[in-house]
């Protein structure tokens, strides 16, 4: 999920960082006082979730939770993920400080898109299977979105990466399923105990 320092070219780096900064600025402007605890909790969840790696087949997968975070936070997902990614880079060497903008953009933007696509859907979902199914699609779509963006970043850096871009998409299939199931389950629970989250 993370792109490391020293991989992408300067124009890609500059472009992505500018877009990420714009996202963070919008996110900060839209974060209300009451939303700060939620933002902090989801930032911490993202920070921890992507450190726990589960081996599946030849590779490993980890939760990202960008769909769930995007749905609940909207644009505030940008500052939430920026801080979590910064700490992951400093403390564990995942990604890197110079590529912070790229990684933030690649993970937060699909979350924001999911916010606009699924907010109304989930508000109107009443039955448990419907909520789970929407959550599953939401969680999976957010990961798929991130995978497409990572593939695009690598493609823009070096056009020879086109085969790799395909491989990246394939490699994300298990994560899409795990993340979808986890997001679906989380939303079923949230809808039951705290339905007002979806009405904000």
């Amino acid at each position: 999920m993370h792109i490391a320092d020293g991989i992408v070219t300067l124009p890609v780096l500059a472009g992505s960082t500018t877009l990420a900064l714009a996202g963070v600025a919008i996110g900060l402007a839209r974060t209300k006082y009451e939303q700060i605890p939620q933002t902090a909790v989801l930032s911490a969840s993202f920070f921890v979730a992507s450190l726990i790696h589960v081996p599946i087949g030849p590779g490993q997968v980890h939760l990202v939770l960008n769909g769930l975070a995007g749905l609940i936070l909207g644009w505030s997902v940008f500052p939430a993920l920026l801080i979590a990614l910064l700490l992951q880079a400093i403390l564990f060497g995942y990604g890197g400080v110079t590529v912070l903008g790229i990684n933030t953009l690649n993970m937060a933007l699909p979350g924001v898109i999911c916010f606009y696509l699924f907010r109304a859907v989930l508000k109107n979902c009443q039955t448990r299977p419907a909520v789970f199914a929407s959550g599953f699609i939401l969680g999976g779509a957010a990961i798929a979105g991130s995978a497409v963006m990572i593939a695009a970043t690598l493609y823009l850096t070096n056009q020879e990466f086109v085969e790799v871009a395909g491989a990246i998409l394939l490699a994300h299939i298990p994560i899409i399923i795990v993340e979808g199931a986890m997001t679906g389950a989380a939303l079923v629970f949230l809808k039951k105990v705290s339905p007002q989250i979806f009405n904000q």
Partner: peptide, 14 residues
């Protein structure tokens, strides 16, 4: 609850 459902093997991804 979601995190507890996962195995606790903490491995790196790089």
């Amino acid at each position: 609850a979601a995190l507890l459902l996962l195995p606790s093997s903490v491995l790196a991804h790089k």
